[in-house]
Simulated assay, not measured.
Amino acid sequence: MLKLLGASLVLLAATLAGFAQARQYADRPRQIRGLIAALQRLETEIRYGYTPLPEAMRRIAQQCREPLRGFFSRAASEMNPPRSASAQEGLELAMEALWKTTAMKAPEREVLRQLGCTLGTSDRADQTSHIAMALRQLGQEEISAREDQSKYEKMCRSLGLLLGALIVILIF
């Protein structure tokens, strides 16, 4: 009886690990789409709203779902007093603190890092052109993430279950 319980727990743990990895592949394209929508809103705020950058990021945070909500909220709070960080520093600090909570990878982080270098340091037209370039790059990353999802999501689920079964067979 105890062996059966142990085998069930091993099988369950391996299956859940496979499902957790598959969820990462499913969440990445969704989060990239959310980031694209957030940057489009930021572009609109900069171009038409004449909104200060910290206020624009705070508004964007209110419209996003987690983990992007926390990311933009943290960046906005870093740019507001008493810290009064630049946009680049605010985005960097938010990425350091919250990037691990996202399913996004290094290419998306690099796009945001490059965008942070130009936000708040040039005129509106230049900033909107840099945001447009970031949107194109993120669009390419979204396509890549969808391809990865179609390749690996189902495989991770199956592999978790099969790996659990293999461990149970080898142990017992």
Rank of each mutant, 00 (worst) to 15 (best):
R124A: 05
P67S: 11
L93D: 04
A106Y: 05
A38K: 02
I60Y: 02
A75F: 04
S84F: 04
Q21E: 13
A38W: 02
M104A: 00
S129Y: 09
G90F: 01
E78P: 03
A132W: 12
L9M: 13
H130P: 13
C64F: 13
E78S: 07
G90P: 00
L9N: 09
T15M: 06
E55P: 07
Y48W: 03
L135P: 12
A87Y: 00
T51G: 10
E66A: 15
Q149M: 10
H130Y: 15
A26C: 05
N80P: 11
T102V: 07
A56M: 02
A87I: 00
L138S: 09
K154L: 07
I171H: 02
R59W: 08
A134Y: 06
S144L: 08
A94I: 02
R146I: 00
L2S: 15
R146W: 02
I143G: 12
A94H: 04
M155N: 02
E45D: 13
M95G: 08
G120Y: 05
P29K: 11
G120E: 03
E141G: 11
R74S: 09
Q140C: 15
V111F: 01
F72Q: 02
L161A: 06
M95K: 12
E89L: 07
D148G: 07
I46Y: 09
R59K: 13
L119E: 00
T102K: 03
I60V: 13
T121N: 03
L115M: 10
P54I: 03
Q24E: 14
Q21H: 12
L170R: 14
G6M: 14
H130S: 15
Y48R: 07
I36R: 15
P29Q: 12
R33D: 14
M155W: 03
Q140N: 15
L2K: 13
G116A: 05
Q62P: 10
S86E: 01
S122F: 08
E45Q: 13
E142C: 03
R30T: 13
R28D: 02
S77I: 00
E66F: 13
F71Q: 02
T15H: 04
A97R: 07
E142G: 04
M155D: 04
A132I: 12
